[in-house]
Amino acid sequence: MEILASRVLFRPADYARSIEFYRDDIGLAVAREYGAGTVFYAGQSLIELAGHGSPAEGAPPFPGALWLQVRDVYATQSELEGRGVTIARTAKQEPWGLHEMHVTDPDGVTLIFVQVPETHPLRRDTRND
């Protein structure tokens, strides 16, 4: 099997509010719009909000979170606060070395904004270790 592309797809309860959140509040750029949906750039991935269909009745909430790497999580927090975005958990360094901040989207999905310090193993070439 060869995976050619991937994206996260949400069917939000309030499509217009979710568009406003991802486009205006968070500040993601629109990759494309197609009549009943909008696709946003999210680093090397895409987030699609489908205005067609609806969340499955009785379906559990999104079981995970979106992990969004940024250069400076503290500057990102200030930027989002300046736009009026509620910060669910303020930026701090975690025991595993990453700096993280949480925001919740209109449907309860957690967006984890992550800063990877230069000394963290995720930034190190381990091929010669």
Score class of each variant (00 low, 15 high):
59 A>W: 01
73 V>S: 01
118 E>L: 14
17 R>L: 13
88 A>S: 15
46 L>C: 13
104 T>Q: 15
87 I>E: 14
114 V>L: 04
93 Q>P: 10
88 A>C: 14
85 V>R: 04
32 R>Q: 14
30 V>Q: 00
89 R>T: 11
2 E>G: 12
107 D>Q: 03
83 R>V: 06
69 Q>M: 11
89 R>C: 10
19 I>L: 15
59 A>D: 02
19 I>H: 05
123 R>V: 08
25 D>M: 10
99 H>Y: 14
120 H>C: 00
4 L>C: 14
72 D>W: 01
1 M>T: 05
119 T>D: 15
43 G>D: 01
106 P>A: 01
64 G>M: 11
44 Q>T: 14
37 G>E: 08
52 H>P: 02
112 I>E: 08
83 R>A: 03
61 P>T: 04
121 P>R: 00
55 P>A: 07
69 Q>L: 15
56 A>G: 12
49 L>N: 10
9 L>R: 14
12 P>N: 12
26 I>V: 05
113 F>C: 11
114 V>N: 07
67 W>M: 14
78 S>D: 11
56 A>L: 13
21 F>L: 02
31 A>C: 10
58 G>N: 00
97 G>I: 00
41 Y>E: 13
103 V>A: 10
67 W>C: 11
16 A>G: 02
107 D>T: 01
78 S>E: 14
110 T>P: 07
31 A>Q: 09
28 L>G: 07
8 V>N: 13
78 S>Q: 11
63 P>K: 03
112 I>R: 07
103 V>C: 07
65 A>W: 14
62 F>N: 10
115 Q>Y: 00
48 E>A: 13
24 D>M: 10
125 D>V: 02
115 Q>C: 06
2 E>L: 15
12 P>C: 05
23 R>C: 03
72 D>Y: 01
59 A>S: 05
121 P>L: 00
24 D>V: 09
31 A>F: 14
65 A>S: 15
59 A>Q: 05
104 T>F: 05
107 D>P: 08
86 T>K: 15
100 E>D: 06
54 S>D: 05
111 L>G: 10
46 L>T: 08
44 Q>F: 15
96 W>I: 00
57 E>H: 05
70 V>W: 01
40 F>R: 01
37 G>S: 14
33 E>I: 05
103 V>M: 11
18 S>A: 03
3 I>P: 12
84 G>L: 07
75 A>I: 00
50 A>V: 03
5 A>K: 12
28 L>D: 02
103 V>N: 10
57 E>T: 09
48 E>R: 15
58 G>Y: 00
80 L>R: 05
48 E>K: 09
24 D>T: 09
25 D>N: 09
79 E>C: 11
40 F>K: 03
50 A>D: 06
70 V>D: 01
84 G>A: 04
35 G>A: 02
13 A>I: 06
23 R>V: 01
40 F>Y: 03
23 R>L: 08
56 A>Y: 06
71 R>D: 15
4 L>G: 12
9 L>I: 14
89 R>I: 12
122 L>N: 13
126 T>W: 09
27 G>M: 04
59 A>M: 06
72 D>P: 04
119 T>P: 04
30 V>D: 00
87 I>W: 10
119 T>Y: 08
122 L>W: 08
99 H>K: 15
99 H>A: 13
96 W>F: 01
87 I>M: 07
90 T>W: 12
111 L>Y: 04
119 T>G: 12
77 Q>V: 10
19 I>W: 09
